[in-house]
């Protein structure tokens, strides 16, 4: 039940603000006993599924700029491989501290908006 509510909460954030579900998923997963690395990888999978749904809704409504996206994707894939190697080798503790910093930065950006 707890996990269903967690999913609902993250989806709700994404629906309300257009983002935020991923940033909430990581500490929620950690709170249910996942290690930091597992939480981060599982949140990528979760946001991947939610993004497919959102992309479908974008396809039905607004036009999507495929050409601009295509300029960044090849380098993004290189980044994806580097990031995955980083995630494997970083310690759970350092990962949590970095992500804490990212949470603060995201919060400040929202509050200054």
């Amino acid at each position: 039940m707890k996990k269903h509510i967690m999913g609902l909460l993250c989806g709700l954030l994404n629906g309300l603000f257009g983002s935020g579900g991923g940033i909430a998923a990581v500490p929620l997963l950690e709170a249910t006993g996942s290690e930091a690395k597992e939480s981060h990888a599982t949140s990528v999978a979760f946001i991947f599924i939610l993004s497919i749904a959102t992309t479908i809704s974008y396809l039905l409504g607004d036009k999507l700029d495929f050409i601009t996206a295509a300029k960044y994707i090849p380098y993004g894939i290189i980044g994806a491989v580097i990031g995955a190697i980083f995630l494997k080798n970083i310690s759970n503790s350092v990962l949590r501290r970095i992500f804490g910093g990212i949470m603060l930065a995201a919060a400040i950006r929202i509050l200054l908006k």
């Binding site: 269903h4 967690m6 999913g7 709700l12 998923a25 997963l29 990888a41 939610l50 749904a53």
Partner: peptide, 21 residues
């Protein structure tokens, strides 16, 4: 690193949550 079983529990709520949001 991916906890697929846990993920399966998150998805239905997540998709429903987006619609509500």
């Amino acid at each position: 690193f991916v906890q697929w079983k846990k993920l399966m529990y998150l998805i239905p709520g997540g998709l429903f949550g987006i619609l509500v949001g």
